[in-house]
Design a protein around this nucleic acid. Sequence first.
DNA 1: CCCGCAACTGTTATAATGTTGCAAAACTTG
DNA 2: CAAGTTTTGCAACATTATAACAGTTGCGGG
Lengths: 163, 163
Amino acid sequence: MSASALPYRPHNHEACVNQALADAREICQRQNARLTPTRERVLELIWQSHKPLGAYDVLAQLTEDGHNAAPPTVYRALDFLQQHGLVHRIASLNAFIGCTHAGEHHTGMFLICRACGNVLEMTAPAVSESVRQAAGAENFKVSDVTLEIAGLCPSCQLEHVDE
Amino acid sequence: MSASALPYRPHNHEACVNQALADAREICQRQNARLTPTRERVLELIWQSHKPLGAYDVLAQLTEDGHNAAPPTVYRALDFLQQHGLVHRIASLNAFIGCTHAGEHHTGMFLICRACGNVLEMTAPAVSESVRQAAGAENFKVSDVTLEIAGLCPSCQLEHVDE
DNA sequence: CCCGCAACTGTTATAATGTTGCAAAACTTG
DNA sequence: CAAGTTTTGCAACATTATAACAGTTGCGGG
Ligand SMILES: [Zn+2]
Ligand SMILES: [Zn+2]
Ligand SMILES: [Zn+2]
Ligand SMILES: [Zn+2]
């Protein structure tokens, strides 16, 4: 599966999308899950960039497609995709982004650029470990970790010399 | 400032509230900020337990008080309280909770029990450090970290042997 | 004391995000 | 094909958050 192309660097993004869709098809097949046209289309829309997309943005684009969609259409597709580890929800933005580690067992950590809006999902075992440790110190049993980091990506730091 | 009483253990919670209010008054004074009656009341409501409270829950209670309040009243008070580090917003719950480290420079990390709803805010320098490190490895300039951990608190693990 | 500015509040309306419930349609399996 | 399951369409509704503007209050300088 894809060696991470950095979202905020120019790259052949069509390759990102194709890879993601191919991975998705394979994963769903393996899990006996039905990647229906609507679901696949929603995944494709989510992957149209490395910026998280709101549910209603997805809805608007489905409508442009001529698809007669209502909010539940989108939320159901997104639920499905989340369930199968194909997209993540970014709680601090109420938005969704394609998972760049689909299929792999991982805990997402997201670097969210406030200037360009791009998000990089990274896996950081050291972070996961220290989180687990800290929670363990309180005898807390972890089931889900939300780790979202807002700031400036390398590209945008050049322009925003202030702050 | 308060040595953390664990939220999910029985404790004299009135002391938590009083401490929080006293701290708030002092902090606002130092910062030349006006802790008006509405703001103080909202803070008190937020502190009524260690479970995060939604903005509209606060609103409902203000209304019970006889206060003729609308959503902006609450959101403005909450904005103020956040600005001055007196409450935190829990993004994964769309809810607010009193800060247990008001005044101290800290990065919050929240242990959210899915069973009892209580939230423990903890400071874990090791975690902050590893997050900073991981972000630094990508040349990302961190400005805000959202770290929310859902799971089971020690008390609730006893009952929920399953899962 | 009172004017004038700034901060705070009240009020109405509206935007943005997410859910429920039920019936019709599509697919799966025997 | 028939029965059962999953998925979709659709209408209504619930929850969370913001915009815009007018009124009020607190406070320092004439
Ligand atoms: Zn790409
Ligand atoms: Zn950027
Ligand atoms: Zn307490
Ligand atoms: Zn608990």
